[in-house]
Nucleic acid binder design. Structure first.
Lengths: 228, 228
DNA sequence: GCAAACATAATAGTATTACTATCGTTTTTC
DNA sequence: GAAAAACGATAGTAATACTATTATGTTTGC
């Protein structure tokens, strides 16, 4: 199966970049090392100048790929959620039973991220680290609405939609499938953040607890709604 | 009761400010108009210079109250969560029944914010607007851990603890009370954010749905755990 | 009533950031 | 082998987030 998927690419809205970084060696290095640099130092301290130094290239060359660092972050986030969507579809597609399917979906979406050899120059663990630590920074700007119009967040919206449908499939009369889906996705990140920085605000310390917490949360809610 | 509480103040960790803004007229104007300005234009575009112009004062004077704009945001967040804690205690203190108490707590913590005349120069609605739109920006910096050590987030942590205890009181054997508490607090903000900017990612459009969603979520989870 | 202490205002200056613009060199491509 | 595209190097700009200094007004104690 690995081989079958060798020529896969996560497709990203071309409006997010000036020149497709997947199309050249330099572009790939920008993404690869950009992930490392942001993961190591945080997004605020990240600059194109520093990234240029790191990859032995020039600031101005990076601007030929990305308009600014905010769009670069949106690119990385789009990639991440695109990758999540691909994994979600891949892992749940063959499961017919709605409850088993939802269970698998929860596993894919909330479990700790591991490296995926399918995508060579992306370090998924470091990227997850970015998404956890920068959380919803791409959304939290005065320009959200404009950027939303431009379709920058389509991947994420599609993922929430898919996940919401899987919840609905378990209990069609439950009226908050989308809210539950978006809550689980954002809260899972948030819980990982708390585990790393505010352990006194979570109970998910040992591995497994994180997943169990969300599984119970979702299935309790859905089951209760079904029994009404 | 209003009168009884006239001389109340939300206490904030003195390390967050250089000079207590509650101690002078200028300080109060800084907070009052700072809230308006951030609420109107977003935190990124907010500068002390602009705030100075707005209140007919000088940039340098504002620096005598707050070290930088990030600490100003932490101050506002601390005030907000301190206010939430005060409301939580006030509204639930007299309720003996754990389930009724939790229900009230959920109402206080997730319902739409309204102006509170107890605190004259704070516009709670605008402040809530900031907290929703800037979300966890105060946390999301490379310096979280240091700032956490300094105690900047004590109020929030205490609030999560209290709320977690109320959940535990309903079902002592439920092992994820803190995670559930922190999830509800952050997700409620997040759902309000989605309602404003990404309505396709929520089902909480009509008023009331938001509260019902979280009430069902919490009580389903807690009840299911109690029946195990 | 007046000096000391304090709060505030005004101005100038600095380092960094987030770019833009220009131009020269290298590499690719047909 | 010429044209086009990609890349690198340098310089420059406007805004930001401050710091430093000095001046002006205001309060307070005696």
């Amino acid at each position: 199966m690995q081989d079958l998927l060798k020529n896969l690419r996560i497709v990203i809205n071309p409006k997010v970049f000036v020149k497709d970084p997947q199309s050249s060696d330099l572009g790939q290095r920008i993404v690869e090392q950009g992930i490392q640099l942001i993961s190591e130092t945080g997004f605020e301290r990240f600059t194109f100048r520093k990234l240029g130094e790191r990859i032995g290239s020039n600031e101005s060359s990076i601007y030929r790929y990305f308009e600014n660092k905010h769009k670069f972050l949106i690119y990385l986030n789009s990639w991440y959620w695109g990758w999540m969507e691909y994994r979600l579809v891949l892992m749940t597609n063959s499961i017919a039973d709605p409850r088993k399917r939802l269970d698998k979906a929860l596993e894919v979406l909330t479990q700790k991220v591991e490296a995926d050899p399918t995508f060579a120059y992306i370090d998924e663990v470091a990227l997850n680290n970015i998404v956890v630590n920068e959380h919803f920074k791409p959304f939290l700007t005065a320009e959200v609405d404009q950027e939303n119009k431009e379709g920058y967040f389509e991947v994420y919206k599609r993922l929430v939609g898919r996940f919401g449908q899987m919840i609905s499939a378990c209990c069609p009369q439950y009226p908050y499938a989308l809210s539950l889906a978006s809550t689980v996705l954002s809260s899972s990140l948030h819980q990982y953040f708390l585990q790393a920085h505010f352990p006194s605000l979570t109970d998910c310390t040992d591995p497994g607890a994180h997943g169990t917490f969300f599984r119970q949360l979702v299935f309790s809610t859905v089951t209760a709604a079904a029994n009404d």
